[in-house]
């Protein structure tokens, strides 16, 4: 994996805040007016939750260089922790449950990050599988976590802040959008700070980082904690805003890989990359199913769809690793640069 992307290098003369503000303006003002409920339910809600999870994993893997295969575990921790906080603490506002669930995910993330102090690369990735299997097992084994529901399924509580309901498709979209926007902004602040530089220093050369006085162990644990916090909250959005009903089995290894693919395809060590990657991963199956049923008709059933999805996704990842190792972000930047220079020339 080549990781050499940095967003701090300006490619054009527009101010850095302009694009995010414009996008947020469209997301808040225009999309709720024109969007259909299909757009919200099938595209935007999973997109937002997966993007946030991608941002979280990118802090750990893209910036700090610690590969993790346990993202889905932290999604699950977030979802089930928020469910329990909401259920068991009377009068705790939903945002309080969400914040606390992030804290719980961060704590568990730090515990499962401890092997990173001794293990690197491939071995660390394998050790993060422990989180993946342990969390899924614990949530299934102890029915307390799902309030003794027979199948381990939990239902999302209604979303409301200070009496305002967010239970319609648009409402849940705006709820997710706000949380994602705030956390993304904070993540952006983090990666540009001294701690963010420490992340990259540890990733690029751990020995040199230690010698120049970067607190390597602390930096790794901060990366695990912050990353798990963000992924945990993404899990709450996945469970409460998108699916509304989740079970532990939904947070399996496939989901962990999905999030890893999001940041590989989108671009490692790039906040924007998580959004690019998530967009591609959410939209590809939908396009595939449309195109497939148009071309092949009835033969293209859900089984074939599922298979062809995996094949197309696998192919995409191989293509990206070979042709565009820095992900969609660098692809996008190149196109933008080329068009701006062409426009300026005319």
């Amino acid at each position: 994996m080549t990781i050499a992307t940095l967003e701090a290098i300006p490619t054009s003369y527009t101010p850095r805040w302009l694009t995010p503000v414009l996008l947020l303006g469209i997301a808040y003002l225009i999309i709720p007016l024109v969007g259909t409920s299909y757009l919200f339910e099938a595209i935007l809600l999973p997109f937002l939750a997966l993007s946030l999870a991608g941002v979280g994993l990118n802090i750990l893997t893209g910036y700090a260089g610690q590969v993790s295969l346990g993202s889905a575990a932290f999604l699950a921790v977030g979802a089930f922790a928020a469910y329990n906080f909401n259920l068991r603490i009377d009068g705790l506002p939903i945002l309080g449950s969400i914040f606390l669930s992030g804290v719980v995910a961060a704590a568990i993330g730090i515990v499962f990050g401890l092997p990173s102090l001794r293990l690197r690369g491939f071995y660390l990735a394998v050790s993060t599988l422990a989180a993946q299997f342990f969390v899924q097992w614990a949530l299934t084994k102890f029915s307390w976590f799902s309030n003794n529901s027979a199948s381990g399924v939990i239902d999302a509580p209604p979303l409301s802040i200070a009496g305002v309901e967010f239970n319609s498709a648009v409402g849940r979209y705006l709820f997710s959008l706000t949380i994602v926007a705030v956390l993304t902004f904070l993540a952006y602040r983090l990666v540009l700070s001294q701690t963010g530089r420490n992340f990259i220093a540890v990733r690029d050369n751990e020995t040199a980082a230690r010698i120049i006085g970067v607190p390597v162990l602390k930096t790794k644990l901060i990366a695990f904690g912050v990353s798990s916090f963000v992924i945990g909250i993404a899990g709450v959005l996945w469970a409460f805003a998108y699916l509304r009903t989740v079970e532990p089995a939904g947070f399996n290894l496939d989901r962990s890989f999905q999030i890893l693919f999001i940041i590989i395809i989108g671009g490692l060590a790039s906040i924007r990359g998580a959004f690019f990657g998530a967009a591609l991963l959410v939209v590809t199956p939908l396009i595939l199913s449309r195109v497939g049923s148009f071309l092949l008709g009835d033969f293209f059933d859900s089984g074939v769809l599922d298979m062809s999805q995996r094949i197309v996704l696998g192919g995409l990842i191989i293509l990206f690793l070979i042709l565009e190792p820095d992900g969609l972000v660098s692809f996008w930047d190149r196109i933008r640069k080329r068009t701006t220079t062409r426009l300026l020339r005319q």
Partner: peptide, 8 residues
């Protein structure tokens, strides 16, 4: 060299 290649 032991620079951090991904940093400016």
């Amino acid at each position: 060299l032991a620079l951090f290649k991904g940093l400016s």
